[in-house]
Amino acid sequence: MSSACTDPNLDSPNHKDHVAYGSDKGCPAGHPVRIPALTFDIQYGVKGTAAGYYLSSDLVGKSASSMHGDAFVSWDVTTMNKRTKNCVLQRRTCDNNGYLK
């Protein structure tokens, strides 16, 4: 499983070069900070066949399985650190209260 990693500056002039892909073994030396991944599982109720259904984020491939989402993190610092330690860094899936599923 690959993961996204960033350099310590967290941005670059073109907003792309600061990010690199890592692996299960970690991040590349030039991009040592792992970026937590969030997964949104959204289901749309539709009738009929999948033909003709696609998300606006995939006009070319016309897939109904990919979209972009933004997260604005404004958690209490203690709570966020607990989730990072117990869920993100250990690559575990946790519920909204930080408990393992």
Rank of each mutant, 00 (worst) to 15 (best):
G61T: 06
G45D: 12
P36K: 00
D24H: 00
R83V: 13
A29S: 12
T49Y: 02
Y44W: 09
S3E: 09
D17L: 05
D70L: 03
S12N: 04
P28I: 02
R83C: 05
P13N: 02
A50V: 08
S65N: 12
D76R: 03
S3T: 12
N96Q: 15
N9C: 03
V77N: 09
K47L: 12
C94L: 06
V77T: 07
T93W: 10
D95G: 07
M80V: 00
I35W: 02
A64P: 02
V73M: 15
A4D: 08
Y99A: 07
Y99L: 07
C87P: 05
C5M: 07
Y54E: 07
N86Q: 15
S2K: 00
R91N: 15
F72I: 08
N86E: 15
M1Y: 10
G61I: 05
G22C: 10
V19E: 12
I35E: 14
T6C: 03
K82Q: 06
K101R: 15
A29P: 04
F40Q: 11
P36H: 05
S56G: 09
L59W: 00
N9L: 12
L89G: 07
N96H: 10
G30L: 11
S66F: 05
L59A: 14
L55G: 00
A20T: 02
Y99H: 13
F40D: 14
D24C: 07
N14W: 06
A37K: 15
R83A: 10
V88S: 11
S57C: 09
H31G: 03
P8H: 10
Y44G: 11
R91K: 14
S3P: 03
L38W: 11
F72H: 10
G48E: 09
H31T: 07
T6G: 01
T78Y: 02
P28A: 07
H68A: 12
L10R: 13
D58Y: 03
G48K: 12
D95S: 00
P8D: 08
M67H: 05
V46H: 14
H31Y: 06
A64L: 04
G98K: 11
L59K: 13
G30S: 12
Y53N: 05
C87I: 01
Q43D: 08
C5S: 01
A64W: 10
H31F: 07
N86A: 11
D41K: 14
F72W: 07
V46L: 08
V77Y: 03
M67P: 05
N14E: 08
S65V: 10
Q43Y: 12
K47V: 13
